[in-house]
């Protein structure tokens, strides 16, 4: 399935865009997990690797909530890479 991931800060700067699309293997019809989406991001967008860091420490938000690795992503969900925040 195709998942669009919103990017911010250094991640957006790394690919010069506010979003990227990834093709992710489905764990069930029309559904994938956050872990699979992160792995696909790393594999399909090497420029994002330093912003993502390790899969264990990387975070995706799904519909504006921090998501665990096992959280399911469904069509229409808003997915964002929350990497290397640094306000203040």
């Amino acid at each position: 399935m195709r998942v669009e991931v919103l990017l911010f800060g250094p991640a957006g700067a790394a690919v010069n865009s506010d979003r990227v699309a990834v093709e992710v293997a489905e764990c069930e019809p029309g559904v994938c997990t956050v872990r699979e989406a992160l792995q696909a991001l790393q594999a399909q967008h090497p420029a994002l690797r330093s912003a993502i860091g390790t899969i264990e420490r990387a975070r995706l938000a799904v519909n504006h909530q921090y998501a665990s690795a096992e959280t399911k992503i469904r069509p229409g969900d808003e997915v964002a890479l929350i990497a290397l925040v640094g306000g203040g």
Partner: peptide
């Protein structure tokens, strides 16, 4: 507060 702000609140500076 400040330590967690820098970890958890999705704000980036350029």
């Amino acid at each position: 507060f400040i330590d967690r702000l820098k970890q958890d609140v999705p704000i980036w500076k350029r």
